[in-house]
Every structure is written in structure tokens, then in C-alpha cells.
Design a protein around this nucleic acid. Sequence first.
DNA 1: CGCGAAATTGACTTTGACGTAAAAGTCAAT
DNA 2: ATTGACTTTTACGTCAAAGTCAATTTCGCG
Lengths: 130, 130
Amino acid sequence: MPVNNYYSITEMTREFGVSTRTLRFYEDEGLIHPERRGRTRLYRQADRRLIAEILRGRRIGFTIAEIREIIQVYSQPPGEIGQLKLLMKRIDEKRDDLRQKRKDIEDTLTELDHIEEACIGRLAEIGVGT
Amino acid sequence: MPVNNYYSITEMTREFGVSTRTLRFYEDEGLIHPERRGRTRLYRQADRRLIAEILRGRRIGFTIAEIREIIQVYSQPPGEIGQLKLLMKRIDEKRDDLRQKRKDIEDTLTELDHIEEACIGRLAEIGVGT
DNA sequence: CGCGAAATTGACTTTGACGTAAAAGTCAAT
DNA sequence: ATTGACTTTTACGTCAAAGTCAATTTCGCG
């Protein structure tokens, strides 16, 4: 249970199924910045949302650097025009990458369907004899 | 160009954009088994298809072990009933995993859309003053 | 206050997926 | 026979993303 709207690090680890080491690692990498009371980390709603986003990126296969990039864009939209255009180009690239990945996933899903069908057929075959 | 329906290793690397090291690594890991003429590897259509599948798995984020599993299922459908059921369970799990990944990707795609919109807005703002 | 559980830190290790470098073999063409 | 372009094998290196461990600190609470 959160105390005073703050979550301890172990509460976070339980919620997200990651280790404390992982959370500290993300902090070292500049992805999250929990508050401190003394040396103890205190996590809040904003941190929870951020962590959820980080883990989503991780599941997709983004590197820490890529995740950091996306996060930074959110918190600090670049002011310079060249940077903005560069950013948009990188967004486009990432989008293409994701679309490819989605297609790969869909292809693999139908492939899994085929495999399962084969299994069912095989089971029926064998099952007859039992 | 393939000679006599055989492809050399560098032809494969060019086609798939991977290194020779990678192809040999996949062979060491038991994913592919190109023929040999003497010590030289010769790749064929079947190998090409397999490699395409391996790389698709890689893009999705499967480990070598997972890829190997899927491949083995194809080449050797298990005959024992318990193994078949186990396999189907693992397929179900993998499918859930992929569906989650697809959702993650879709969420991230719309997030990227938002970010890009913000960029466009920002560009319009700034662009006015130039 | 005192004590045990929880948290922090730093250093070291591990794992997966290749990269890289060295030394030697293959083969076609000059 | 030599050159040059590929290949092969072996072995060590690397890089990201944590895991592990040990030595402190700090917190909650009786």
C-alpha cells in the first residue's frame, strides 16, 4: 500500500515484476528520477506511468537509448527547427520499424495457428488408437 | 547470382544484410544446416526460407532458443501425446506473448502519432516567425 | 534507544548475440 | 605460379541489460 501517495521501491518491484536492481539501473540511465527522503527512493504516480512506458518499450525490443529518446521528447519538446525536423524523421523511421514488427508478429501468429492445427490433427490420429 | 541453384555465404549475407559470422553462428546453434562442397558452405532455397524465418523471429525479439524451438516443431512434429500437449501449451503462451507485443506496438504507434502532431504544431508556431 | 528488516551502493559476474582478428585453405583467372 | 577475392576455423572481445554479492545505512517500531 502506498504511504502518503509515495511508493517504496519494493512496492514498485512487486507491481511491475522487476528487481530493485533494474529500477536503480533505469535511474542510473536517466530514465526515471524518483524523489528521495534521505537516501531512500520514493516513487509517485508519474514514476509509475513512466516505468510502465519503459517496460512497454522493453517488451517491444527498444534499447535503453531509444526509450530514453522517446521519454525525453515528451518532457522536453525541442525548440530548434532543425532538431524538430530531425526528430520527426526519427519518428517516421521508428514507425516504419514498428509496422514491420507488427507484420512479423501477425505472420508468426498465423504460422503458430498452422502449427497448432497440425498438432490437433496429429492428436486426433494418435488419440484414435488409445 | 546463384551457381547451379547453390548460393555462397556472401550472397546470403548480401541478400539478408547479415554477416558471415551471424550465419555461421546460426549454424553452430543448430538453426541451419547448409550443405558442403569440401569445407565450403552451400546454401539452397530451403536454407534461404529458413534464414528469413530466423530473422523474422529475431526482429520480433525471440531468442535463439525460442527460434530453434519453432523451427524444430516444423521439421519434427512430436509423436508422443504428452509432448504434443506440452507443445500446444507453449504455442498458446507464445501467442499470448505476441498479442501483448502487438498491443504494445499499437499503443506506441499512436503515441508516436501524438508526438509527431506536437512537433507539427511546434513547427507551425516557430515557422511563422521565419 | 536498539534491533532486525529493508534499502543503498559499488564492484564484479553473467548471458545472449554476435564482432574481430589471425592464420590458413580454395579457386578462378591472369 | 601468383594474385586476389572468398572462406573456414579457432579463439578471444564486446556490448547491453541486468544479476549477484557484500558492506553499509536507514527505517519502522516495540
